[in-house]
Simulated scan of single mutants.
Amino acid sequence: MDELEFRRRIMSDPKNRDPEVSAAINASDKNAQFVDEVMELDKKISKAMSVDAPDDLADRILFTHTSTHEDNLVTPNFARRAMAMAASVAFVVGLLVGQVNWGNFIVKPAQASLEATAMDHVLNEKAFVSSIDEQVPSSQINAKMLPFAYQLSKTFPYHVYYLNHCGFGHTNAVHMVFQGDKGKVTLFLTRISSENTRDFNEKGMAGFIEPMGETSLILVGDENENLANIAENLSKIIKPII
């Protein structure tokens, strides 16, 4: 499991201790320290949000309502105190949340476009995957695609540097980096459907989306890369499991 995936899992569920997460914690003092910090933050947020209502809350509300009705005069003291208490809680939570650098591991929400999600994912992980060469065989690619009900019908035609699962919007994706004609190309295979084939360009990079039933094949690479041709080649060998 890479560091980014580990951080995503811990942030989404600080108490998660599945075998992969436990192995990552035991293998790295940095990961263990990160878990401790997130657990401590979780405790602080829970404590800040645990504001007990006064025992005489109901009596105060009734008293305020009665006074307003009889004297035609609004008594705002209790309302002001309640609003001040809520504002204090929000301020404390804001301070706690501000202590964490969320930008390093938060993925765009599901409402974001496929283009934006894919492009941000590539930019955020570019430094991490740039020096990796796992020399991934086709058998491992099939293993990663299996949860998405897809398999290769032939050997993958490009050299694969990196392969894993990742968070992608509201769901997951196969995340692969392989060698294209002009440079490295990033592939995402995700269960988010797309209506039509389309390309996009942003920040000196190009992208291409190929619908595959209820799944989308997304490629991001150099702006001079012929991603449409690569997508056509891959769509011929990435087949649904029947």
Score class of each variant (00 low, 15 high):
residue 2 D to S: 02
residue 3 E to H: 02
residue 7 R to H: 03
residue 10 I to K: 02
residue 11 M to H: 04
residue 12 S to G: 01
residue 15 K to L: 11
residue 15 K to T: 13
residue 15 K to Q: 11
residue 16 N to F: 02
residue 19 P to L: 03
residue 27 A to Q: 06
residue 28 S to C: 02
residue 31 N to Q: 05
residue 33 Q to T: 09
residue 34 F to V: 07
residue 39 M to T: 11
residue 45 I to Y: 09
residue 48 A to D: 01
residue 48 A to N: 04
residue 56 D to K: 10
residue 68 T to A: 14
residue 69 H to W: 09
residue 72 N to H: 12
residue 75 T to I: 02
residue 76 P to I: 07
residue 76 P to W: 00
residue 78 F to V: 11
residue 81 R to G: 00
residue 88 S to M: 11
residue 91 F to S: 13
residue 92 V to S: 12
residue 92 V to M: 10
residue 93 V to F: 04
residue 93 V to Q: 09
residue 97 V to R: 14
residue 99 Q to F: 00
residue 103 G to D: 15
residue 104 N to W: 01
residue 104 N to M: 06
residue 107 V to A: 09
residue 112 A to S: 15
residue 115 E to G: 05
residue 115 E to S: 12
residue 115 E to Y: 08
residue 116 A to F: 10
residue 117 T to W: 02
residue 119 M to D: 07
residue 121 H to G: 05
residue 121 H to F: 11
residue 121 H to N: 11
residue 122 V to P: 02
residue 125 E to M: 12
residue 126 K to T: 07
residue 126 K to E: 14
residue 126 K to P: 00
residue 129 V to C: 04
residue 130 S to N: 10
residue 132 I to Y: 04
residue 137 P to R: 04
residue 138 S to I: 05
residue 140 Q to R: 15
residue 142 N to M: 01
residue 142 N to E: 05
residue 144 K to Q: 09
residue 145 M to D: 08
residue 146 L to M: 12
residue 148 F to P: 01
residue 160 V to P: 01
residue 161 Y to E: 07
residue 164 N to R: 05
residue 168 F to C: 08
residue 168 F to E: 08
residue 171 T to V: 14
residue 172 N to S: 13
residue 174 V to H: 03
residue 175 H to K: 07
residue 180 G to E: 03
residue 182 K to V: 12
residue 183 G to R: 05
residue 184 K to P: 00
residue 185 V to M: 09
residue 187 L to M: 15
residue 188 F to A: 07
residue 190 T to E: 02
residue 192 I to V: 13
residue 195 E to Q: 13
residue 195 E to V: 04
residue 196 N to Q: 14
residue 199 D to W: 03
residue 201 N to K: 14
residue 205 M to V: 01
residue 207 G to A: 10
residue 210 E to H: 12
residue 212 M to P: 06
residue 213 G to K: 06
residue 214 E to S: 13
residue 214 E to C: 00
residue 215 T to V: 13
residue 217 L to M: 15
residue 220 V to Y: 04
residue 220 V to W: 09
residue 222 D to R: 08
residue 225 E to C: 07
residue 229 N to C: 01
residue 229 N to Y: 08
residue 229 N to I: 00
residue 231 A to T: 06
residue 233 N to D: 14
residue 236 K to C: 00
residue 239 K to T: 15
residue 240 P to M: 09
residue 241 I to G: 00
residue 241 I to R: 14
